[in-house]
Amino acid sequence: MRRRSLILAAVPAGLVTLSACGDDKPDSSKASDSASPSAPAPSATSAAPPPKIVDGPLPAVTAGVKFGEKPTVAKGTGTPSDQLAVKTLIVGTGKTVVEKDVVQANLLGQLWDSAKVLVDTFAAKPQFTQLAPGASMDGIRYALTGKKVGSRVEFSVPPTWGFGAAGNTEAGVKGTDTLVFVFDIQEAFSPKSSAKGKNVPQSDAALPKVGTNTDGTAPSIVVPKSAAPTKLVSNYVIEGDGPALVASDSVLVQYKGVVWNTGKEFDSTYTRGAPTSFALQQVVKGWSQGLTGKKVGSRVVIVVPPALGYGDNPPSGSGLEKDSTMVFSVDILS
């Protein structure tokens, strides 16, 4: 499993691992080095060779047939394919999704035999799924790669490319169950995605200066040789024109974190090669407070004092010392 982002509080694994999303509630105020909530349970991936992509069979969508509408999907009839049955119900006109992209989508997932719904985000908020080995269910990765943003895709996932022979007891999935999904692909983000907007002057010499490059590489962070601020700092480096975040939002971000005293990097999505997603309720207080009210599309510099970070209890192996002040550059992608 992938190393957890250090900004995140511990998050329990649950049914959302079907889609590799990050909307679970935190069960601890401490950070952990376990998998990121963007990563699935181990049983959600396999070492099986790629499946054949076949046309069907697939259950009918009997209601909610438009993009963005909650679909009603009939119970499967007959024997499902032992390969990956995929059908594009609505062909989008946006960018083509490629492997390693993070897809933002609404989705419905249910069992073939009973039509029991396992996951439904249409009544809530879209989810983020990275289409990479070890980051999402193999069946989802193979079914969505090559599709266009704006598409509605229906597909069935046999156990080989789903939860395997062990199934998933927490989700109510047996080792013989075939899963059926409908994904409405709203957007796709690559490991090179970055902020978009207007540069904002960084004129305070007492605060870190962050690079304004938007080529997908990590921006520079230059920390001044002065005492760290004792209160939270959250300023625009690049101001986007998207909606302002509220405290209940989930976000997709690129970020880099350094220690104030040394300027040394200790955590970065650029180093890991993929954006990460989380709910603002899951992160350290400095992040949740610093990002609330900021616009999507922006790059923000956040200076997190110890009281709003990890204080005297930094995560083991993080490279952070007790009472470290952290500095982050954060690109709010979605």
Rank of each mutant, 00 (worst) to 15 (best):
R3K: 13
R4A: 15
I7C: 00
V16N: 13
L18N: 11
G22M: 00
D24T: 08
D27V: 12
S28L: 00
S29A: 03
K30N: 06
A35C: 03
S43L: 02
A44L: 13
T45Y: 08
P49H: 01
P49G: 08
P49V: 00
G64E: 14
G64C: 13
G64N: 12
F67H: 12
F67G: 06
G68K: 10
G68N: 12
K70M: 11
K70V: 01
P71G: 11
T72A: 15
V73N: 11
K75Y: 03
T79A: 12
T79H: 00
T79E: 13
P80A: 12
D82E: 11
A85H: 09
L89A: 14
V91A: 14
T93R: 12
T96G: 04
E99Q: 15
D101S: 13
V102D: 06
V102H: 13
A105E: 07
N106F: 13
L107K: 04
Q110C: 15
S114L: 02
S114D: 14
D120K: 14
F122H: 14
F122M: 04
P126W: 05
P126F: 07
Q127W: 02
F128W: 13
T129H: 00
A132W: 07
A132C: 08
G134Y: 09
A135Q: 14
S136V: 11
S136E: 03
I140G: 06
R141Y: 00
A143E: 05
K148S: 08
V149P: 08
R152A: 03
F155I: 09
S156N: 05
W161L: 04
T169Q: 10
A171C: 12
G172S: 08
K174A: 15
T176V: 10
D177V: 07
L179W: 01
L179V: 14
F183K: 02
D184H: 14
Q186A: 05
P191V: 05
K192W: 00
K192A: 11
S193V: 05
S193E: 08
S194N: 12
G197R: 12
K198W: 00
N199E: 14
Q202H: 07
D204M: 08
A205L: 11
A206D: 13
V210A: 07
G211W: 09
N213S: 14
D215W: 02
G216Y: 10
P219N: 03
S220V: 01
V223A: 00
V223P: 00
P224L: 05
P224G: 07
T230N: 01
L232G: 10
V233T: 08
E239W: 01
D241S: 15
V246K: 14
V251E: 05
L252P: 11
V259N: 11
W260F: 14
E265R: 01
D267K: 00
S268T: 04
T276E: 06
T276F: 01
Q281S: 15
V284T: 07
G286P: 06
S288C: 06
S288Y: 10
T292S: 15
G293Q: 09
K294S: 04
K294W: 01
V296T: 15
S298I: 09
R299S: 11
V300N: 07
I302G: 03
P305K: 03
P306I: 03
G309Q: 01
N313T: 15
S318E: 07
G319D: 09
L320Y: 04
K322Q: 08
K322I: 02
D323G: 02
T325M: 04
T325E: 04
V327Q: 02
V327T: 06
D331L: 05
